[in-house]
Amino acid sequence: MSQEDQQQADTEAGRTPVEDLASKTLDEIGHQAYWRANVRTLLSLLLVWFLVSFGCGILWVDALNAYSFFGWKLGFWFSQQGAIYTFVILIFVYVFQMNALDRRFNVDEDR
């Protein structure tokens, strides 16, 4: 249900004082912006996730194997080591970014 529908429904129910409605709408706008920022963060992290595993580890593995990385072929290293290291970093970046986002939009949990 869109915001207009929501307002409509609330008005029809005849139970929402005007001030409450205003603050609720503000909150909702904030929440929508928060959610969009959240999804953007997710998508950019998942892009990296896809590139290191499905990209470097599978699709381009043969091409990358032409290069060596210490004692590994590069593609082999990505598929058996590099992808996993990247995954760990990704989760911590996610934690850091999301906690910052929570604070910025004032939706973090009370302690």
């Binding site: 580890g57 082999f76 995954f87 999301m98």
Partner: peptide, 23 residues
């Protein structure tokens, strides 16, 4: 080299879980 499907599959799935579902 083919064993990589388990290494990436199981840990990569964990990333999906942590980012998209768990919170």
């Amino acid at each position: 080299a083919d064993g990589a499907r388990y290494l990436m599959g199981w840990t990569g799935g964990y990333v999906l879980l942590a980012l998209c579902l768990a919170p």
